[in-house]
Amino acid sequence: MELRIENMTCGGCAKSVTKAIQSVDPNAGIETNPAARTVKVETTATSAALQKVLKDAGYPATTR
Rank of each mutant, 00 (worst) to 15 (best):
S16D: 01
I30Y: 04
A28R: 08
S16K: 15
Q51T: 10
C13A: 12
T62E: 15
N33W: 03
D25C: 02
E31C: 02
A57F: 02
I30L: 06
V53A: 12
M8V: 03
T32R: 05
D25N: 11
P34H: 12
R37I: 01
A35D: 11
A35K: 13
S47T: 15
S47W: 07
Q22I: 01
Q51V: 09
A48R: 09
K52H: 08
T38Q: 12
D25E: 06
V17L: 01
K15A: 14
A35I: 07
N7M: 04
V41G: 07
Y59V: 00
G11L: 00
T18D: 11
A28T: 02
I21A: 04
S23Q: 15
D56Q: 11
A45Y: 10
I5C: 07
C10Y: 00
L54K: 14
D56S: 04
E31V: 14
N27L: 11
A45R: 13
S47E: 15
V41Y: 12
N33P: 11
G12K: 01
V53M: 11
T38K: 15
Y59F: 14
C13L: 09
S23L: 10
T32N: 10
Q51W: 06
I21N: 08
P26H: 11
N27W: 03
A61M: 05
T38G: 07
I30P: 03
T62W: 05
A28Q: 06
G29N: 13
T63R: 15
N33S: 14
T18Q: 13
T43S: 15
Q51C: 10
Q51D: 06
R37L: 02
T62N: 13
V24A: 13
E2M: 13
R4W: 06
L54P: 13
L3K: 12
E42N: 15
S47H: 09
T9V: 06
D56I: 03
A28I: 02
V53F: 01
Q22G: 04
L50H: 06
I21C: 10
Q51I: 10
D56P: 01
D25G: 08
T38C: 08
N27D: 14
P34F: 07
M8L: 07
V24F: 08
V39K: 01
E31S: 14
A49T: 07
A48V: 13
A45P: 03
I30D: 08
T18S: 10
T43M: 04
G12W: 01
A14S: 15
T9L: 00
R64Y: 10
K19P: 02
K15T: 08
K40C: 02
A20Y: 03
G29P: 05
V41L: 07
A36V: 07
G29K: 14
A61Y: 02
N33R: 05
G11P: 00
L3M: 15
G12F: 00
K55M: 06
I5Y: 05
K15R: 15
P26F: 09
C10E: 00
V17E: 00
K55T: 14
P60F: 03
A48W: 08
G29E: 14
G12A: 01
Q22V: 02
G58Q: 00
D56L: 08
S16L: 01
A45T: 05
P26I: 02
L3C: 14
P34K: 07
A61Q: 12
N7V: 03
G12Q: 05
T18H: 04
